[in-house]
Amino acid sequence: MIHIDRSMVGLAAATLILAAAGGFVPDWLAFILTLALAKALVVQGVVLQMRAGLVSFGQGLFFCVGGYAVGMGGHFFGINDAPVLLLAGALAAVALAAVLGLLMTRYRDIFFAMLSLALSMILFGVLVKSSELGSTDGFNVHPATFFGLSFKTEAYKTALYLLTVLLAGGGALVLHLVHHSGLGRMWEAIRENEIRVEYLGLSPRWLLYANYLLAAAFAALGGGLTALATGHIDPEMSFWTTSGEFVFIALLGGTSHVAAPMVAAVLFAFVRTYAIEFTPHTWQMILGFVLLGIIVFLPKGLWSLVRSEKRAKA
């Protein structure tokens, strides 16, 4: 049976509180939170891979597939229901990952990172060449319905916010369970010593394959939600700097707890938006110093603040 631990209760509580907050926060804040939590979903996938020792500089590939699935579903196939579109995006990403994973799971370290980057840039190239899809300008996403219900402007944003919060919270719960399952432990074992895992009679390659597929699904969900929230998609989603940002947020939060990506994504969104506002000419520098500061003082990410205090008490 599933053992309910403190983290799970905490996550459920945080999700409920965030969902309830949707009624009070101003629209712009809800929008930033929606985008940040959607991004957090992608980052969950990046962290998932990091726990198995893999760093992807090409997670934008699946992020983009998720986004374009939502956009194209509305434009070309007349599908307008958000959950259906998101599911379609996730399935498309998993299908693509199932093929690419056969190749990718042969690679480790920097080669995994660079090959994943190359693959996402090839998708970028294909999209840039596709004038029917608007090339680099991309196209606008039709407003979606939610389980068949359509909403007007204000309610639409709230509905999307709630959906994002629930998916981000639910996704984190699922990943928490996965991390503490046998599979999750095996991934960590691969990171520590792949050869010993082989000696145990397991196949690291197929274990990583499962990891790759799961991460792709999460990235696509995040991409789909981002597309619905901004109402626009373009090939930039697949550009390597987008993927770099996911890695950035993953390290910002740390890999030790599933709540970390969410906290990091929200914090990142605020730091960036305020840096842009107060120092429009040097916001990248501020971002750089924040990142450097975190690496120097909190090498295990923001979440180590929580962890260290706990340990001190114990």
Partner: peptide, 19 residues
């Protein structure tokens, strides 16, 4: 458990105040 909830909320609230 409280600790994690508190911490999460504290970070979120801090971000919120900043915002």
């Amino acid at each position: 458990m409280k600790n994690i909830v508190q911490k999460t909320l504290a970070v979120m609230a801090a971000a919120g105040t900043l915002a």
